[in-house]
Simulated assay, not measured.
Amino acid sequence: MADKLKITLVKSTIGAIPKHRATVKALGLTKLNKTVEKPDNAAVRGMIEQIKHMVKVEEI
C-alpha cells in the first residue's frame, strides 16, 4: 500500500447527486482535472469508492 494517493477529478459534478458533490468538495477537488494528494487511509479510500466513476486515482 502506498502512503499517499493522487486523486484527479475527470468527470464534472454538474449531473451528480448532492451526496457525491459533497464528497468531491470534501476531497478538495474544485475544478475539472484538478489533482490533490491525500493520505492513503480508510476514510479517503471510502470517499474514493463513493465517487470512483468521477475520479482517477494513482498511488504515489
Score class of each variant (00 low, 15 high):
D40R: 11
I14V: 15
Q50V: 03
A26Q: 12
E49I: 00
E37I: 03
T30P: 00
I14Y: 05
A42I: 03
I60D: 07
A2G: 12
K11A: 14
L27G: 04
M47H: 01
A43R: 10
D3Y: 11
T23P: 07
G28H: 09
V57K: 04
K4Y: 12
G46E: 00
A42F: 02
T30E: 13
M54G: 01
V57G: 04
L27W: 05
V24S: 06
S12E: 06
S12N: 14
L32N: 10
V36H: 01
I51A: 03
T8D: 00
K31R: 15
T8R: 05
N41Q: 10
I51R: 05
K56V: 05
E49D: 11
T8H: 01
T13D: 14
A16N: 09
T13N: 11
L32V: 05
R45S: 07
G15F: 00
T13C: 13
A2I: 02
L9R: 11
R45K: 13
K11C: 06
M54R: 03
R21S: 01
A43D: 10
P18N: 10
V55D: 02
L27E: 01
T35S: 07
A2K: 07
D40G: 04
T13A: 15
V36T: 03
K31D: 10
V24Y: 06
L32H: 07
V24Q: 08
T35V: 08
D3Q: 13
L29P: 02
D40Y: 14
T35E: 05
